[in-house]
């Protein structure tokens, strides 16, 4: 549409240009540009109109993002309300049994929440320390050249589609774990948790590194000049100064893990047991949504509405995490 308007304007300008050409021949030798400009001014009414319409048009485009948010909220809330008419909200949030397809269906979300939190926890066990250590290395130890090579390579890791990680978890990591630990099931929460951790490393590394590099050099120099080693400077000066930025990166990592879908869907199966045994299959909120919507639940059925109740819970979880991250990192910015 925008492109269309551009073309349109250009065409109009082309037409006035043609008119220009005709009047030009008569002008002959002496060139009076300001007079020509004054003449053209009269023909400008269309471009004046464009000038007035453009801000409104762009404003409407900007509203689309707001509409998207409203669309998400409306979709989730309106359908979730239908669900809560059929299943009491209390039962949903405290129920430990999830049997949507049974004769007497039960809709307790706790199995999904435990699956989500456990996989997130495993992922953060991997991504937290490794991401932070990578950040320390990149920000405090690596030379410019090394950093210039390592950072883009880490970013590749972040650019790999999650479905590829899912494949990797299911066909490589799980069999590998089962070699070492035969009790682990063919689908389990451990393997996708670990792989999800690897996926989140670059996110935590780069956000924490940003926080650390924005610590003023004077603070580092103050510590180094006292005879402190780099290690001591990092742990006693840099990390404390960048602490809220690092926390924010962890929180965003958690949010990312909670919302991650394909890795857990593929590698953790669809068992809805309320358990804390990481060798077993567990379902996350995201994986439940994939399973139910892919199973072509008839619109209007309780199980169809349950999708939205779960998605709403998921949405609230990640929203809280994102707001928390923003709050923490804004506090951090005020420090210097």
């Amino acid at each position: 549409m925008y492109a269309l308007i551009l073309c349109w304007v250009q065409m109009l300008e082309g037409v006035t240009g043609e008119m220009q050409k005709n009047s030009e021949v008569r002008h002959g030798e002496s060139l009076n540009v300001s007079e020509m400009i004054a003449q053209n001014k009269n023909k400008k009414s269309i471009s004046n109109l464009v000038e007035k319409l453009i801000p409104t048009f762009l404003f409407l485009l900007a509203l689309i993002t707001v509409l998207t948010t409203l669309g998400i909220l409306y979709t989730l809330l309106s359908q979730a309300i239908e669900f809560f008419k059929q299943v009491p909200i209390w039962e949903f949030f405290t129920g430990t049994v999830l049997k949507p397809l049974s004769q007497n269906p039960e809709f307790g979300i706790l199995p999904l929440i435990s699956g989500t939190l456990i996989s997130t926890f495993i992922a953060m066990l991997v991504a937290g320390p490794i991401g932070l250590m990578s950040a320390v290395y990149l920000s405090e130890y690596a030379s410019d050249n090394v950093r210039r090579v390592l950072k883009p390579m880490l970013e590749i890791l972040a650019g790999i589609p999650t479905i590829v990680y899912g494949f990797f978890a299911f066909t490589f990591v799980t069999p590998l774990i089962r070699e070492i630990w035969p009790d682990v099931g063919a689908t389990n929460i451990l393997s996708p948790g670990l792989v999800m951790g690897v996926m989140i490393i670059p996110m935590i590394a780069s956000l924490s590194e940003d926080a650390m590099t924005s610590v003023p050099n004077a603070m580092r120099e103050g510590s180094l000049a006292m005879g402190a080693t780099k290690l001591e400077t990092t742990f006693k000066v840099v990390i404390p100064a960048a602490f809220s930025g690092i926390i924010a990166s962890f929180v965003l990592g958690i949010s990312r893990a909670i919302g991650e879908t394909m890795i857990v869907t593929i590698a953790s199966g669809s068992s809805k047991n309320f358990t804390f045994d990481i060798t077993q299959s567990m379902q996350t909120m995201t994986a439940y949504i994939v399973e139910v919507s892919g199973g072509e639940a008839p619109a209007g059925s309780t199980i169809y509405y349950s999708l939205y109740a779960v998605a709403l819970t998921l949405f609230v979880f990640t929203l809280i995490m994102n707001l928390l991250a923003r709050y923490v990192s804004r506090k951090f910015r005020e420090e210097y």
């Binding site: 993002t65 998207t68 948010t69 998400i72 979709t75 989730l76 965003l252 949010s255 909670i258 919302g259 991650e260 879908t261 995201t286 949504i289 994939v290 919507s293 999708l307 939205y308 998605a311 998921l314 949405f315 990640t318 929203l319 995490m321 994102n322 707001l323």
Partner: peptide, 12 residues
């Protein structure tokens, strides 16, 4: 905030 919404929610 939209950038932080899980992709599956966009699916719904």
């Amino acid at each position: 905030n939209l950038a932080g919404v899980p992709s599956i929610v966009y699916g719904l």
